[in-house]
């Protein structure tokens, strides 16, 4: 544990930029940090698209495969860092590993930051993350007012930070301050739900009327899936010069439409159920963790207020 004074933040950024192509938060998403020190806000889009681009060339027909660069993500919230970890699991485990994801993720570094002020739409604690969850980070920052406490979470983080000079040892006062901040933030996240229970209830809810009721209101757009830190469905398309992959969404009717005209998920009801089952049942079955990190983006932005938290409570009541 070390301390970085706020005035030295630009130096840290510049120093990280010597090893990585460094991205930081902006209002709309993570973007390369140019000459400014990024404002440490939570962007509308999670950072998944930096490692898993919405549009990515798999290979050109002339045989060229694009090479990935080492990317550093600065100022990643605990929910988003965990989201990347979940994606890493999905892309690298099982009989095949996705080399495009793996190369990008492994060559990158993730510098997380704790959430001193969780939002009412945050529910990361349901998934064991919490406002100061460090899982999936290499380095972790806590804002204690006059500076940041920096913690190395992984060996990669330790190796990196150990050669950065302008760090101070934290005082007892600093640590006490940090404990207060953590306690205050954690106290704001109450009334959790156990994802294991949700998984078990969903085992029996395939035929539930819940899906039809939600489908009445759902617009079947991909806003929630595209803003989700863990949604990862994609399409592969042949363009003029290259085979590319592009994000896709299980909520789109054509997602499963077959050339014969048959569609196994023709109704919004079927597709909504797929999304919820995939996140909270199938992924849990596979990894003992749900495919949700409680970032709240889908809750905040859904144009018709389909609130996932409300749905989860409903599932617990129904099951």
């Amino acid at each position: 544990m070390r301390k970085l004074l706020k005035k030295d933040l630009p130096r840290l950024i510049e120093w990280l930029k010597t090893s990585y192509l460094l991205y930081g938060p902006t209002e709309y998403g993570f973007a390369p940090i140019a000459d400014h020190t990024p404002e440490l806000i939570t962007p509308i889009r999670p950072p998944k698209g930096i490692f898993f681009p919405q549009y990515q060339v798999l290979f050109r027909y002339d045989g060229k495969v694009p090479k990935s660069k080492g990317i550093g993500l600065f100022g990643v919230r605990p929910c988003d860092a965990k989201g990347l970890l979940i994606l890493n699991r999905i892309f690298t485990q099982g009989p095949y590993r996705d080399n495009y994801w793996q190369d990008q993720y492994q060559s990158g570094i993730i510098i997380g930051i704790g959430c001193n002020q969780p939002q009412p739409t945050c529910f990361c604690h349901w998934f064991g993350i919490g406002p100061f969850g460090k899982e999936g980070c290499d380095l972790f920052l806590t804002d204690i007012g006059d500076g940041f406490l920096i913690e190395a979470v992984s060996k990669k983080g330790e190796d990196l930070i150990s050669s950065f000079d302008p760090l101070l040892p934290p005082t007892d006062q600093d640590l006490k301050r940090r404990d207060e901040i953590v306690a205050r933030a954690e106290a704001q996240l109450k009334d959790g739900i156990d994802p294991k229970l949700i998984k078990e209830r969903l085992d029996n809810l395939w035929e539930s009327p819940i899906w039809g009721e939600l489908a009445e209101r759902c617009l079947s757009c991909a806003l929630c899936t595209y803003l989700c830190p863990t949604c990862h469905c994609f399409d592969i398309q042949d363009e003029e010069k290259a085979r590319v992959r592009i994000w896709d969404s299980c909520l789109f009717p054509l997602f499963t439409q077959e050339a014969s005209g048959h569609n196994p998920r023709p109704e919004i009801r079927d597709r909504l159920r797929q999304r919820i089952m995939h996140k909270f049942n199938y992924l849990y079955l596979q990894y003992k963790e749900a495919g949700c990190v409680g970032c709240g983006r889908c809750v905040i932005f859904c144009p018709v207020n389909l609130d996932l938290r409300e749905l989860m409570r409903r599932i617990l009541d129904e099951g």
């Binding site: 919405q54 899936t225 595209y226 054509l254 144009p303």
Partner: peptide
């Protein structure tokens, strides 16, 4: 340039009711 092609605009539009939209 900010568009993420989520089609929330299209799907909330009263007049985008085509069975299969030209983009799809």
């Amino acid at each position: 340039g900010r568009c993420i092609r989520c089609y929330a605009c299209r799907n909330s539009c009263p007049f985008c009711y085509c069975d299969v939209c030209f983009v799809d």
